[in-house]
Design a protein around this nucleic acid. Structure first.
Lengths: 204, 204
DNA sequence: TGGATATGACTCTTGGGTAAGTTACCACGG
DNA sequence: CCGTGGTAACTTACCCAAGAGTCATATCCA
């Protein structure tokens, strides 16, 4: 049988995998796991669906690979800032700034780890949870520090505040996604203005 | 042909519709539009799928009916508070308090209007947008007031801050959903403590 | 020539939606 | 007090499209 487009295109596996991951991450990050179809990723990459299955085994495998690629980057940056000596709001703002410059060209990455449509059981859930936990732990640590400054060490209060903090970051990322012209630097300046509007300009 | 379970069960349409809407709202609100299946709603209601289609035409029709039921309640409460004379943070906290007591027994309602898996085109999108806008407008109004107090009237700043504010409410609702034992009153006290941790106890 | 790169054309499952029929209730004429 | 027909409430069994996943095969290069 004649199969006009078959045969290698001379693209080595590693390169192809990288290209697929980039496209898949964008789709998963913007549309969510459930709404992303493997066929669509294949089409965007200019290749066929079976090749993706050949390299990544399943849709979940593909998602997991995206997580691994993005998660390392993200967690590393947050950990780097956590290792600094900034505390409280200051630390929060530094984290934000780090995120902005890190994710400027791939803002959708953040959403990968907070996608509500991702499967909630099975190996993916574990993988996603492991990264989300790693990020969440760091957030919680920062929040706990902040709260301790105000003599509040109630674990549930810290837990709620951490959720709120992650919600703030998430909503900022969402807003950024909808304002693509905004640079990381502009975004940071904006956040400082917002903070000032809340606290007055004493704190920075 | 014998159809052992067919025939009326003596439940009038209005009652049945109400029952279906309650169950559907919970499913849509907790699982999201995409992850909710009509068959599952039917099963939970102890009826068959076609009855739902008979009453609500389509899955989107069902969702729209849920929105109508929940949206009126939600927007009304926020409008009531907006009509008061509280300003800035104070208004925000009052809104929160209103939400908590209003949604204590149906916390999932909030998510109905901020479900990212809902269709983004078609009549539903319009309907959802109309309610979300109504809520968003009120939020933006409150935020704009707050920002004006700090001499910031930049529209993009207000837009970003509004998104953040909605993100905060959303994350609090999410946290509440995961802590079912927490009462509305406890939730409110917790929020006041969190606010105090941030601002010191001068402001209330 | 064998292994890596690739594909067209399937299968199978899930879930939205429908056709056609069944049962219970009720108003009304005898 | 009893048919009897109309309508509202309901179901089973199906259709169909979309999308995950697979198989057999084809091409290319070292």
């Amino acid at each position: 049988m004649v199969r006009p487009n078959a045969g290698t295109k001379g693209v080595p596996r590693v390169d192809r995998e990288g290209q697929i991951l980039e496209i898949a991450s964008e789709q998963f990050g913007t549309l969510g796991f459930a709404a992303t179809s493997v066929a669509a990723v294949a089409e965007k990459a200019g290749i066929s669906k079976p090749l993706i299955y050949n390299y990544f085994t399943s849709k979940e495998g593909l998602y997991e690979a995206c997580l691994d690629r993005g998660g390392a980057i993200l967690a590393e940056e947050i950990e780097r800032i956590a290792a600094g000596d900034a505390v409280g709001i200051e630390r929060g703002m530094q984290t934000l700034g780090g995120m902005f410059s890190l994710l400027e060209s791939q803002r959708y990455l953040w959403r990968l780890f907070f996608d509500t449509t991702a499967p909630s059981t099975g190996p993916i859930a574990d993988s996603i949870a492991s990264y989300a936990d790693r990020i969440g732990k760091l957030a919680e640590e920062g929040v706990a520090e902040l709260m301790a400054l105000a003599d509040n060490t109630d674990p549930l209060d810290v837990s709620a505040m951490t959720t709120v903090w992650l919600g703030i970051v998430d909503s900022l990322m969402g807003w950024w996604l909808e304002h693509p012209d905004e640079s990381a630097e502009e975004m940071m300046q904006r956040c400082i203005r917002l903070l000032t509007a809340l606290f007055g300009d004493t704190s920075l």
